[in-house]
């Protein structure tokens, strides 16, 4: 494809990214570095601040759960799920904006989202994190890494691998326009299990890969091998998702009050 077409594709995906994802990397980094000039996030660093900060956490509550009877850890976990379900909706809208995606076989669209969405969410989490903690709840809260590590097992094991990945991923210094293309590449993976018609998916991905390669050359001229380094991250991501799904399976078996959001259940069932 012509360079002009590849640049147009990059612009289109960046615009869709800005449209569907409320907390951009630029905004998150401004909050984390204290450069917003507005509200600083509420810091959750222990159980007391968790309870104080719950008023900021999340927007929608899960009905049918008696909040009085739940311990804070589990209640927080349910809030995270509710936000994750909303994030899946945002990623779905972004996927639909990728040129050619909605023309794919509908079963394949479902498969691409089922296998790609958690990988996308983990990549999108990276800009919200630094080595000390993570922004949550649209940047209104900063939750410390130490606090997450102090939760009881297996909750304490959930976020640590994401921190380790994110701290390394952030050294690549992608910006939001790079991220938009990388997310599209992840979604358009032609090797997901059960795809019916791989060829058109691979063709779409190839075009987005060309656009990403050009974007990185123009946007990061001094960063050698950035394109190759970024593609290698896709292998790490699959392992993180596999481990995450296994942890959720463990939670389902061990936690009596465990409630898994129906959308997340759909995605994780028979995933890996």
């Amino acid at each position: 494809p012509e360079a002009a077409d590849l640049r147009a594709l990059a612009r289109h995906l960046y615009e869709a990214y800005l449209k569907y994802f409320p907390l951009t990397k630029a905004k998150a980094r401004a909050i984390l570095s204290g450069k917003t000039g507005e509200k600083v996030p509420f810091v959750i660093h222990d159980m007391k601040s968790l309870m104080e900060g719950e008023q900021f956490i999340n927007c929608r509550q899960i009905p049918s759960l008696d909040h009085q009877q739940q311990v804070s850890t589990l209640r927080f976990f349910h809030s995270c799920q509710s936000r994750s379900a909303e994030a899946v909706r945002e990623v779905t809208e972004f996927a639909k904006s990728i040129p050619g995606f909605i023309d794919l076989d509908l079963n394949d669209q479902v498969t691409l989202l089922k296998y790609g969405v958690i990988e996308v969410l983990i990549i999108m989490m990276s800009p919200l994190m630094n080595k000390d903690g993570t922004l949550i709840s649209y940047g209104q809260i900063f939750m410390t890494r130490e606090f997450l590590k102090s939760l009881r097992k297996p909750f304490c094991q959930m976020m640590e691998p994401k921190f380790e990945f994110s701290v390394k991923f952030n050294t690549l210094e992608l910006d939001d326009s790079d991220m938009a293309l990388f997310l599209a590449v992840i979604i358009l993976s032609g090797d997901r299990p059960g795809l019916l018609n791989v060829k058109p998916i691979e063709q779409l991905q190839e075009t987005v890969l060309h656009s990403l390669e050009l974007q990185l050359k123009l946007n990061h001229p001094d960063s050698l091998q950035l394109f190759a380094k970024l593609l290698q991250k896709m292998t790490d991501l699959r392992q993180i998702v596999t481990d995450h799904v296994h942890l959720i399976e463990l939670l389902k078996k061990t936690e009596v009050d465990m409630f898994l959001h129906p959308l997340l259940q759909e995605i994780m069932k028979d995933l890996y």
Binding site: R60, S82, A85, E86, V88, R89, T92, K96, I102, L106, N107, Q109, V110, T111, L113, K114, G194, H261, P262, L263, E266, I267, K269
Partner: peptide
């Protein structure tokens, strides 16, 4: 596959109104 993933399917099909999550 569509049957096993009703909410995902619905999200893909509804271009304007998001399903009640």
């Amino acid at each position: 596959l569509k049957e096993k993933h009703k909410i995902l399917h619905q999200l893909l099909q509804n271009s304007t109104s998001p399903v009640d999550l």
